[in-house]
């Protein structure tokens, strides 16, 4: 059986990564099912930093198909450039010039339908890296990383999700921060969404946005409140009003923050911290009979 949980947060820095890595750790330790961690925060993947003994198993180039132009066949009709919604093809008929800009290409294939002269042939172009790690317990970590300076988060996320789709067990997808299309594509085929927030005005504002997306996509979701004790009560009032499940509240403690900053797994360091994650795991998985 396979069960996919996406971990997202409207606001960055609320502890989304903390929740992902510690939940992984606890499921790997105490649950029968196999568990896989997939880092979809492809702009800044950070999950790996919490597993000091991680061993790289293998990796592959994340690529997508980009057309190349055969200028001997091209008649400079401009049809491909008209079809391209992303302005990735330049054609200047009077000077017989045509070129593809791989940085803007979304690999949709529309230009291939446009070209009647067979002047376009697709080649694979690298846009990132996928790396698999053995991290001790569990089925390991799959990390996606986009090449610096590109704007192709979604294709990289699609690629790593495709590669982990058939995993037989519980897959945890650590989403990018925010509420943009890359978050949507991480959440897209998940069975459950955990939204991580903090009890501050920023946290509440961004949670509203994230909860809006989860609702619109028809995903069941619950909220983990990190750093309880700071801020105010507005967040809890919101959760109650909206009838949103509160999965767990993790208190703010300076010693946690210090340990976290050093890249430690808090669920290994503190029994009480591990207990929060046992609660979260049970809350989500029990109802599914897992």
């Amino acid at each position: 059986m396979s069960y996919k949980i996406a971990i997202a947060s409207g606001k960055g820095g609320t502890g989304k990564t903390t929740v992902a890595v510690n939940l992984y750790n606890v499921i790997a330790k105490y649950h029968e099912q196999d568990v896989l961690l997939v880092d979809c925060d492809v702009e800044e993947p950070n999950d790996l930093l919490f597993f000091s003994g991680a061993k790289r198993l293998d990796g592959e180039v994340v690529s997508h198909r980009v057309p190349e132009l055969d200028l001997d066949r091209c008649t400079f009709c401009r049809k491909c450039s008209e079809y391209c919604e992303f302005n990735a093809i330049t054609v200047i008929p009077p000077v017989k010039f045509a070129a593809v800009n791989p940085d803007l290409c979304h690999s949709c294939g529309a230009c291939l339908y446009a070209c009647k002269d067979h002047a376009l042939v697709e080649k694979r172009v690298g846009i990132g890296e996928l790396t698999r790690y053995d991290i001790g317990l569990g089925a390991g970590l799959v990390e996606g990383k986009m090449n610096v300076g590109l704007a192709l988060q979604t294709p990289v996320i699609r690629y790593i999700k495709d590669k982990t789709r058939d995993f037989n067990g519980i897959a945890l997808y650590d989403a990018p921060p925010g509420t943009s299309c890359s978050v949507v594509s991480t959440v897209a085929d998940s069975d459950y969404v955990i939204l991580v927030t903090e009890p501050t005005p920023f946290g509440l504002h961004d949670l509203r946005l994230a909860a809006g997306i989860a609702r619109e996509m028809g995903k069941p979701f619950g909220v983990v409140v990190n750093k309880t004790g700071i801020g105010n009560n507005d967040l809890y009032e919101y959760l109650e009003q909206e009838g949103i499940a509160l999965l767990a509240g993790i208190p703010f403690k300076k010693e946690y923050a210090e340990k976290y900053a050093g890249g430690a797994l808090l669920s290994d360091a503190y029994g009480e911290y591990e207990a929060f994650f046992k609660t979260i795991a049970n809350n989500i998985l029990k109802s599914k009979g897992l």
């Binding site: 300076g149 990018p176 890249g263």
Partner: peptide, 25 residues
């Protein structure tokens, strides 16, 4: 992040101030 919006936010500016925190990330 480091993607498209970030590039758009620094193209043509004079100064960038980076706010970071003491963590491995």
């Amino acid at each position: 992040g480091i993607g498209c919006p970030v590039i758009s936010s620094i193209t043509g500016v004079d100064t960038v101030v980076m706010i970071t925190e003491p963590s491995s990330s």
